[in-house]
Design a protein around this nucleic acid. Structure first.
Length: 397
DNA sequence: TCTGGGGTCCTAGGACCC
DNA sequence: TCTGGGGTCCTAGGACCC
């Protein structure tokens, strides 16, 4: 029987910022007051990224606008995110988990799955271990976590959400009927807004209703998705804890602009910077991309994207940029752009290097240049040198 | 000054081949 | 005066997660 832990940080960004502020002599613990972590409203990034338990009591929700949150709580305290510190905390936690088992899967910046099946612990020991970890994290790192324990990843994750913060819960196979089935259908993993609306129309209101529904009926409405939905409702999940990190299927950067724009030159510069960021990341991870896409969100909040298969896989900023430009016009159309992004996918580890007879630039030379540029940019932690290189290439076209 | 950013997975439809 | 069908690859868009 497998034993899986799901561990996630309570109100992660807010807790971590609280730790950071306390470490830097800030007078109060922002976890104890109505507070949120949110982006900069003047840059149109003003949404709630995390909230304190106190703020939660005012009905403030993650991902709602800061404006809305303020209407719910007049004396709300707002703090900017500190992603560098979050990453540090996330890494520390990950290292700590590795001292218990090599089978740790990072599910997000603040969540991991641990496979403890091979530790052959008895039930009492499992619980004791969970409490030990929870308390050690609180003592050593200064923030709390929830630990969910189950016989598979799904059950561990569902258990972790039962009640928060600073709790250990179990959802073993023999507890599914009593603990999982009474929950509302929208609590089930991967059942979001639109699926739950559909299910409620079919009079399926709880996870138990779904588990006991006629599979044919569900199949009629949800096609292939019905298989996993019914399995999940029954607490069935055969996926493995995958310890390998850096197996990303895509890399993307996007940005909500300070103002809506359809200025091609302005948007090209944005694309240029994102191609460089993606290129850097690809080169750092020793990966090459076979597909590139541009995504936009219009002033009406409508999403559009266009993608292009590359002739040769690449991690060269120049190549990415050239190909991105090919699909820029068709993606933008006549729209006013609110948010623009670049994404690469179809990532591979090796390059099928082909030197075209008709291309007078030698890819080996370009690689050399790229290496030097990367070194300089990394040294100064900036992309300063990049635009000049592009600017020149642009003029030559 | 209402609505972020980074991901994964699925689906329907079109192009193209035999 | 008829135009099937299986298969593969690719794309845009949507749902969902934290």
């Amino acid at each position: 029987m497998n034993i899986i832990f799901h561990i996630d940080v309570n109100n992660a960004f807010l807790s971590w910022s609280a730790v950071y502020l306390l470490q830097n002599d800030y007078k109060e613990d922002i976890r104890e007051v109505p507070s949120v972590i949110a982006g900069d409203e003047t840059k149109r990034h003003g949404i709630v990224l995390a909230k304190s338990e106190v703020a939660k009591k005012y009905g403030i929700k993650t991902a709602e606008t800061l404006h809305m949150a303020r209407t719910k709580c007049k004396n709300l305290q707002v703090f900017p995110p500190n992603f560098k510190f979050y990453k540090e905390m996330s890494n520390k936690l990950y290292e700590y988990f590795l001292t218990f088992t090599p089978d740790v899967e990072r599910f997000s910046i603040d969540e991991c799955f641990l496979d403890l099946s091979n530790t052959t612990l008895l039930y009492d020991d499992i619980l004791a271990l969970a409490y030990k970890m929870k308390n050690e994290i609180k003592e050593n790192f200064g923030f709390t976590v929830n630990i969910g324990i189950g016989n598979n990843k799904l059950c561990a994750k569902m258990a972790g959400d039962f009640s928060k913060p600073d709790k250990v819960h179990t959802l073993f196979n023999n507890e599914i009927k009593s603990k999982l089935w009474p929950l509302p259908i929208e609590d089930l993993l991967f059942i979001g807004k639109s699926s739950s609306q559909e299910l409620r129309k079919l009079n399926i209101k709880t996870i138990g209703d779904l588990a006991n529904a006629d599979p044919e009926l569900i199949r009629k409405y949800f096609k292939n998705r019905s298989t996993f939905m019914i399995e999940y409702a029954n607490g069935i999940d055969n996926s493995k804890v995958i310890s390998k990190s850096g197996k990303n299927k895509c890399i993307s950067f996007s940005e909500t602009l300070e103002f809506d724009s359809n200025d091609k030159e302005f948007l090209k510069r944005k694309i240029m910077i994102m191609c460089e960021k993606i290129g850097l990341k690809l080169r750092k991870d020793k990966l090459f991309a076979r597909t590139i896409a541009i995504t936009i969100k219009t002033n009406y909040f409508k999403d559009y994207s266009h993608q292009k298969k590359l002739v040769n896989e690449t991690n060269s900023t120049m190549e990415l940029y050239k190909n991105a430009l090919d699909i820029l016009d068709i993606t933008i159309g006549d729209n006013l752009v609110r948010n623009i992004g670049v994404r690469v996918s179809d990532l591979v580890k090796t390059k099928n290097s082909q030197i075209s007879l008709f291309d007078n630039t030698n890819p080996l030379d370009e690689d050399k240049i790229q290496e030097v540029v990367d070194d300089i940019n990394q040294k100064y932690n900036d992309l300063k040198i990049m635009p000049a290189v592009f600017y020149k290439k642009d003029k030559e076209k």
